[in-house]
Simulated assay, not measured.
Amino acid sequence: MKIVIDENIPLAEDFFSAHGEIVRLPGRQLSAADVADADALLVRSVTRVDEALLGGSQVKFVGTCTIGMDHLDQPWLDQQGIRYINAPGCNANSVVEYVYAALAHLNIDWRGKTVGIIGCGNVGGALYRALTAQGVNCRCYDPLLSLEQNPDLCELEDVLQCDIVSLHTPLTTTGMHPSRHLLTEQQLLQLPRGGILLNCGRGAVIDNKALLQVMHERSDLQVVLDVWEWEPNIDLSLLARVALGSPHIAGYSFDGKLKGTAMIYDAFCESFGLAPSVTLTDVLPAVEHNRIEAPLGADDWQAVRELIDQVYAIAADDKRLRTVASDAGGQGEALSQGFDQLRKDYPVRREFNNYQVTGVAANTPLAITLKAMGFIVQ
């Protein structure tokens, strides 16, 4: 059996090598020739999987180690009888922690703000549950959910009035509620003075040209973009305006990526009638020196900020992207290659649940906040 795997999927050999020949290739450059004689294909969101890629191939199984599936031509795959599977929820914690890290870096204490969440599926739902566990007032927009599923659902206009607005929707262009350009100039201008806007879902959910125009007019807004329309060839003028920018890595925690690999591996084994021989526990390494101490004499918010920064210094992600943009000198190909290289070489980032915080009294507001964020507090 031949298994073609995106080079950015970690430890795939540990899971799949017992079942066939592994071929690692750059996901964005995959061609029909690369997969013509493959039996299975494992991708991430940068690979468009459709007839142009798989037509005439012998691929029987496609696994995407991501939550979203907008890069898969699902009707065509169904028509061809090719099984496809995603990894729902695999990187939800990673993206939620990206939101925390971004707000902490900007010194925005979410506990005293109203937070609007657009898209309350795996990621947005995880963010919603974590924030409400901290007592945060949330408003949510997701036309695919009911009030029974989320009692804080409201209209999009109401969400846009929140102090912080965070987007976590998949990209859809059809159906009753397409998400492409969900936020245009009209919606963006509704954000309140001093508003915070984060997009950790899909770049084209926000009209990036409109966003740039609004930011020219509204210097009070702070914008965090992990995803970009037209990536990897992102708009450098928009990057220059945002408070934080990163190369589509919000979900790139080591834990989240490995969880996605494990989920696809289990589906692969089931699809081909194989007995799984590896589990996530077998390959997920423990974090050494995982005890971190809360800063003495700091107030709760300062302690939260410092603890987050010890685990995930998000400013480094922003700096790396701006360095690549500067080195590219406005050259589209160099920028695209640099963007993808940052994703390929992304450093290991472990999730908060691997770390035990010491020096925090049990059942205090700080302990409640840290536990809700995923830290171990004993």
Score class of each variant (00 low, 15 high):
N86W: 05
N86Y: 06
P88A: 03
C90P: 04
N91A: 11
N91W: 02
A92K: 03
A92I: 03
S94H: 00
V95D: 02
V95R: 03
V96K: 10
E97F: 05
Y98Q: 10
Y98M: 09
Y98L: 05
Y98H: 14
Y100T: 08
Y100I: 05
Y100H: 09
A101K: 01
L103F: 01
A104D: 00
H105S: 13
H105V: 04
L106H: 05
L106A: 09
N107H: 12
I108C: 12
I108Q: 12
D109Y: 04
W110S: 02
R111F: 02
K113E: 11
K113V: 03
T114Y: 02
T114M: 01
V115Y: 02
V115T: 06
I117K: 06
I117E: 01
I117R: 03
G119D: 06
G119K: 07
C120S: 13
G121V: 04
N122L: 03
N122H: 15
N122D: 07
G124V: 07
A126I: 00
L127Q: 06
L127F: 05
Y128P: 00
R129E: 11
R129P: 00
L131K: 00
L131G: 01
L131C: 05
L131S: 00
Q134V: 04
V136Y: 09
V136I: 11
V136W: 09
V136G: 07
N137C: 14
N137V: 14
N137W: 10
C138V: 14
C138Y: 02
C138P: 04
R139D: 00
D142S: 12
D142I: 11
P143L: 06
P143S: 09
P143A: 08
L145H: 08
S146C: 06
S146Y: 06
S146N: 09
L147G: 10
E148R: 14
Q149H: 10
Q149I: 04
N150V: 13
P151K: 15
P151C: 08
D152Q: 15
E155K: 15
E155M: 14
E155D: 15
L156F: 04
L156H: 03
V159Y: 05
V159N: 06
L160N: 07
L160C: 10
L160E: 07
L160P: 10
Q161W: 07
Q161F: 06
Q161L: 14
Q161M: 11
C162Y: 06
D163L: 10
I164C: 04
V165I: 13
S166P: 09
S166Q: 07
L167C: 14
L167P: 13
L167Y: 12
L167E: 11
H168Q: 09
H168P: 06
T169R: 10
T169M: 10
T169D: 09
T173H: 14
T174R: 15
T174S: 15
G175E: 12
G175Q: 11
M176N: 14
M176I: 12
M176C: 12
H177G: 13
S179K: 04
